[in-house]
């Protein structure tokens, strides 16, 4: 399987995705995201703080997942340079942003990843890495990642869409579940997820299809029970995430004829409390090229951030806190039901 970009798919262009989202919103008898925010007295959406700097260090990945909002894969060559990383470090040094969330692609495939983590930790910031698990066993040069994470007290956040091979492999590729189990055992072996270790291993559940996630606590219970009894794996928390209708997941929805029903579900489940707690209100997303966005999804849709400085080298926290957050129909994914964010439910 290739990325949308490599296969020349129309959805490789952000403008085509936005056109579809807006055209459907205009022709279907359902309210727009903007109107729902207005009815909840939340429009325009504004920042509530700056707790997380989420940095996408590149689109290269060893996997090609069917739902990937980044359209990541081995054929994607966009990688953050050390120079841009240094700009990020400069921003951290002059602000008090407590948490850095490293994402990709597979962030570990960036040749400067380890240097970057070390430098962020020197600044005393909390680091979490969105590790796809299989990268740990993909190549011997990555086998020591659990130990590297442990040494630097990095929180590991890993996608595992289900506790069996069938559903996981359907979404993430043949053999991914088996390799994920191997990687989880390696993480557990150095202390990750073990009670009292102080090493946090959180898993991310997202539905393998055109439906919403159920209650996070119940899913966490099921995952913990099955992963422990069948694979002797332990972890801290499960984040239940709603699939956002962009990129490859949008392609899946349209190709399978599920788009309208899925959007109807998201719109019907709009929850003002989830909108109030939306992650874009407390984070800034940095693209591989240093451009700034309201979130990782807006980044993939090339929706520019509304502030004078739109590049990490021009970062101005005061100006950023005054901006209005760019929204479109895909935002319904974060505000449905119990809400959805990179840290799970929000309401």
């Amino acid at each position: 399987m290739k990325s949308l970009k490599a296969s020349g798919h129309p959805f490789a262009h952000a403008a085509t995705q936005i056109e579809l989202l807006e055209k459907q919103a205009a022709t279907q008898p359902r309210p727009t995201f903007r109107s729902k925010l207005q009815s909840a007295d939340l429009f325009p959406l504004r920042p509530a703080g700056l707790d997380v700097l989420q940095i996408n260090v590149g689109k290269m990945c060893n996997q090609v997942c069917k739902h990937c909002h980044v359209d990541a894969g081995p054929d994607r060559k966009e990688i953050m340079t050390r120079e841009t990383m240094q700009h990020c470090l400069d921003v951290l040094a002059k602000t008090t942003i407590p948490t850095v969330d490293l994402t990709g692609g597979a962030p570990e495939m960036n040749p400067d990843f380890r240097w970057f983590v070390e430098e962020i930790r020197k600044l005393g910031r909390h680091v979490m890495v969105r590790c796809n698990l299989t990268i740990i066993v993909a190549n011997p040069k990555y086998n020591d990642l659990p130990d590297f994470f442990r040494q630097h007290q990095v929180d590991v956040v890993s996608s595992l869409p289900f506790y069996n091979a069938d559903k996981t492999d359907r979404q993430r590729g043949q053999g991914v579940f088996q390799d994920s189990v191997k990687a989880l055992r390696l993480l557990n072996a150095v202390g990750y997820g073990q009670p009292g270790s102080g090493l946090t291993l959180n898993l991310v559940y997202n539905p393998a299809g055109a439906f919403m996630p159920g209650p996070q606590a119940s899913l966490e219970q099921q995952f913990k029970r099955v992963l422990l009894s069948e694979f002797e794996i332990v972890f801290n928390s499960l984040f239940a995430i709603t699939n956002i209708p962009i990129s490859r997941y949008l392609d899946y929805l349209v190709a399978s004829g599920n788009y309208d029903n899925y959007m109807d579900k998201l719109v019907t489940a709009f929850n003002p409390a989830a909108a109030t707690g939306a992650m874009c209100r407390t984070m800034i997303s940095v693209g591989w090229d240093g451009q700034l966005y309201d979130c990782d999804f807006n980044q993939m849709l090339d929706m520019p951030l509304r502030a004078p400085g739109r590049h990490i080298r021009d970062f101005n926290a005061d100006e950023l806190m005054q901006r209005t957050i760019a929204v479109n129909e895909h935002c319904f994914g974060c505000t449905a039901g119990a809400g959805s964010s990179c840290g799970g439910t929000t309401a």
Partner: peptide, 11 residues
């Protein structure tokens, strides 16, 4: 069918 899938039931 939707509800059981959402609640994490297997096929």
């Amino acid at each position: 069918t939707n509800d059981t899938l959402e609640k994490g039931c297997t096929e």
